[in-house]
């Protein structure tokens, strides 16, 4: 599956982009930008998960379930077992969300379109209800998370950023490897014609289940990293339906052409929001919403389609 993965153009572009980001942020850019990159990259993992589902025409309006589950797994492991190691945190978040996704996958893999979207929303709101009512989980106030460590050493935010970048590269490469495999190619085939895929001898439900678990793992990892980089979890900003909506929003904004697209989209979203909050504290939501409308009207393929156009412009000219 991973053979020749580093010769893949998308992977090369991704790695170059991340390295440039690391170098720029450690040498030139101010600290606050690094924060935004950190949130953007973390959230980008969840977007990548949604993009995977989207390739099969499945839109999940409840991905905050895994996002929040990963974040709360990190918070609870700190509260009860004192785990603050960033490697463990990431692993715990991914595994916890993956297990939950595996269980719920048995139900969700049978549904498509609006039924899939609404059922996933329902599951996420169940978790929200539980968290908001459970006093020992901090209720709506949530829980705070102490700064991460690495193998017993304290981790500065600079190194946390490098590590997040590293996690993101690993996750994105795995997804690219999956997309290049037979199973990955199946996903677009399922989108085109499910019955034909079944006749070819593949189980559509199984393929969707696998994809769903991967997507849950990514969202869980995103939640875990977000919790570690922000230092706080609470149901309203981690599990509520509007968080799921925000994730879908960024997915649409990013476009689904490439594994790098979700991360660029998520970073741009962080910047839009930062400036919207600063310039118009009373109307920031209108600015964020207006941006989405503009993108849908003018660039239906998302930000990635713009990038593609810019880079392909020269090539097309040569062909002519």
């Amino acid at each position: 599956m991973f053979t020749g993965i580093f010769k893949d153009t998308s992977v090369r572009i991704l790695i170059t982009f991340m390295i440039v980001l690391c170098v720029l942020s450690s040498l030139v850019l101010p600290d606050w930008m690094q924060n935004n990159f950190m949130y953007g990259l973390s959230r980008g993992l969840a977007i990548l998960g949604l993009m995977l589902l989207w390739r099969t025409n499945l839109v999940s309006f409840g991905h905050a379930l895994y996002y929040g589950f990963g974040a709360y797994a990190v918070a609870l492991c700190q509260k009860y077992f004192g785990i603050t190691d960033i490697l463990l945190r990431f692993a715990i978040a991914v595994i916890a969300a993956g297990l939950l996704g595996f269980c719920l996958g048995f139900i969700l893999r049978k549904y498509r379109e609006i039924f899939f979207a609404m059922l996933s929303l329902a599951f996420s709101m169940v978790l929200y209800g539980l968290l908001a009512k459970a006093e020992f989980l901090g209720s709506t106030d949530g829980m705070s998370i102490s700064p991460s460590t690495l193998l017993g050493m304290e981790l500065t935010r600079q190194y946390l950023f490098y590590l997040i970048t590293f996690f993101v590269i690993c996750a994105a490469i795995s997804i690219q490897a999956y997309l290049r495999s037979t199973l990955g190619h199946l996903t677009t085939a399922i989108q085109d014609n499910e019955i034909r895929v079944e006749y070819l001898g593949y189980s559509v439900q199984k393929a969707i289940h696998i994809k769903y678990v991967m997507s849950a793992c990514l969202a869980g990892g995103a939640g875990g990293l977000m919790a570690a980089s922000l230092g706080q979890v609470d149901p309203d900003s981690m599990v509520n339906w509007n968080v799921s909506g925000e994730l879908v929003f960024i997915t649409i904004m990013s476009g689904w052409g490439n594994i790098l697209a979700p991360f660029i989209g998520a970073i741009i979203f962080e910047f839009i929001r930062t400036y919207a909050f600063e310039w118009a504290p009373q109307a920031w939501a209108a600015i964020v919403g207006g941006t989405l409308l503009a993108i849908i009207f003018f660039f239906p393929g998302g930000i990635w389609s713009v990038i593609e156009k810019v880079f392909n412009y020269g090539k097309k000219k040569n062909v002519k």
């Binding site: 101010p30 977000m226 706080q232 309203d236 930062t274 920031w284």
Partner: peptide, 19 residues
């Protein structure tokens, strides 16, 4: 603006301090 939940506010707080 304070809306959006604790996690969002923490992000904004960091912006206030560092940006």
């Amino acid at each position: 603006d304070e809306s959006g939940g604790g996690t969002k506010q923490v992000g904004l707080f960091r912006d206030f301090v560092e940006k």
